[in-house]
């Protein structure tokens, strides 16, 4: 362990602004890209599911008409 205390770790030897700005921004971007990608998957699944149920409904309505 290079740091004596948590305060020393957060102070980063006087470079706190730059170090934490960099790490914070990196974390933000990486999480944003990951979350956006996974959200997109869910959204597409939902869309496909919706179009499927719609199809089903239309088919059922058609069958009901025929009967």
């Amino acid at each position: 362990m290079q740091f004596e205390s948590i305060e020393a770790f957060l102070a980063m030897g006087g470079y706190a602004t730059y170090v934490w700005l960099s790490w914070g921004f990196t974390l933000l971007v990486l999480i944003a890209v990951t979350v956006a990608s996974i959200q997109k998957t869910k959204q597409i699944h939902k869309e496909v599911r919706e179009s499927l149920t719609r199809e089903k409904r239309i088919n059922q309505a058609k069958e009901a008409d025929l009967l």
């Binding site: 290079q2 740091f3 770790f9 980063m12 030897g13 006087g14 170090v19 790490w23």
Partner: peptide, 13 residues
């Protein structure tokens, strides 16, 4: 962040 040594010129940056 925690265990690597600081640089002798650039310090913790």
């Amino acid at each position: 962040l925690l265990f690597a040594p600081p640089d002798y010129q650039q310090g913790e940056s």
